[in-house]
Design a binder for these strands. Structure first.
Lengths: 220, 220
DNA sequence: AGTAACCTATCGATCGATCGATCGACAAAA
DNA sequence: TTTTGTCGATCGATCGATCGATAGGTTACT
């Protein structure tokens, strides 16, 4: 479908060059239509950006809520959240980059709405850390700062991940889970927990829904 | 001086709206000159960006090397690096944001050169982690991934720090050092190390040189 | 000292190119 | 016959950059 093709083209270009540096004609060329045709499927260029960001954030948020519904222990929730976040940001690298980089290009209501989605997601992490802290499983001085640190470190994966890199996505995902558990000093019986102690369900269980239906095509 | 005014104006606008979204006339207006006058002090708009990024990265790199020259223990080096990075990115928030966000706007040789500076800095972190791993002080599975995680989490400070926020910069800086030490599981005698165990010199000792000479004026 | 030659900083006017967006035309599909 | 999709032509606005002009300061020569 043409509409899908346009969104894919926009996604690729926004991720590579940025929203402002991408012209309508760039997108049209990449999607193999004329710039007039674009306007049959959208109202403004910003609409494309909004659609990409909304889809990405809403899917991530939905998947995150599923994780919380399935797992109860804070250390399990944290490890699963890290795996979900890291894997999502690697598989949907382009969308993740756009979500992460182009917020400032938004204006008006959509800007507020996207910000709300973002902070809703952040709040879920906050709750996990608070839960682990109250349960005596985690040891952190400041949950807000810890959330910011964890989110930032996991989001960063989208900036350097490559399927051709030295580490497989599974390795990266597990490794990041371990680092997160170490960062919050997750302990049981005084022993530092690692992800292998937690017998989590298969990670694939969590993020069946790819962002924008674009997962497979988001190479570079 | 007019030249300084122009660079400050460009810095503010690049950080707020991004390089591509900032026009020559925007900069001229902010600097209170005409757009013609800009070209008496620079060759192209990209030159402004390059100057900002070079200054920022080179200062950070220089300060980092001073830290390494003063401290020997990997756990001290790591804590000091975190403090330097976090504090630099908070104080020079605008420059840090530009460095962090606008790399893709660079073209040609400068792109390569900035990438070299960046990876040189990254290598210093890599060495610290390797040193701590060989000395048995740190326990991490993959130093490359740990470097990426640490750098990303510390760089993120520039995105949310505000001098009016709930936490002072010193609190943030110390807290992040503790989180970093926890992430790499820095231990002495089987006991998890915190920054207060390390009797580091005053943090101010490290980063006397502000980026772009702009520290005090970079409030939003 | 006087003045001619040069340099520095700034400006208004303007260049061609490109920007996001709109229009009416036209063909295929429903 | 209406709807859907696509196009070429084109809109006014803005883009980064250049031009020659001008005013004020500095240097060099007489």
């Amino acid at each position: 479908m043409t509409k899908e093709k346009i969104f894919q083209a926009a996604l690729r270009l926004f991720a590579r060059k940025g929203f402002e540096a991408t012209s309508i004609r760039d997108i049209a060329l990449e999607a193999e239509v004329t710039s007039s045709t674009l306007y049959h499927y959208m109202k403004t260029k910003e609409d494309l950006l909004v659609a990409i960001m909304q889809e990405g954030l809403q899917t991530l948020l939905g998947n995150a809520k599923e994780v919380l519904a399935e797992l109860e222990a804070p250390e399990q929730q944290l490890a699963a959240f890290v795996q979900l976040h890291v894997t999502s940001h690697a598989i949907n690298k382009l969308t993740a980059l756009v979500v992460d980089t182009e917020f400032r290009a938004l204006t008006g209501n959509t800007r507020v709405e996207i910000a709300r989605l973002r902070s809703e997601y952040e709040l879920l992490w906050q709750r996990i850390l608070t839960g682990g802290l109250e349960g005596g499983v985690f040891a952190i001085e400041n949950t807000k700062l810890a959330v910011l640190a964890l989110l930032q470190m996991c989001t960063g994966v989208a900036h350097w991940y490559s399927p051709d890199g030295p580490n497989s996505l599974e390795e990266i995902s597990l490794n990041f889970s371990d680092m997160a558990l170490a960062l919050v000093q997750a302990k049981r019986n005084g022993q530092q927990l690692t992800v292998s102690d937690l017998d989590l369900p298969e990670p694939a269980r969590f993020f069946t829904k790819p962002w924008l239906g674009a997962a497979a095509h988001e190479h570079s």
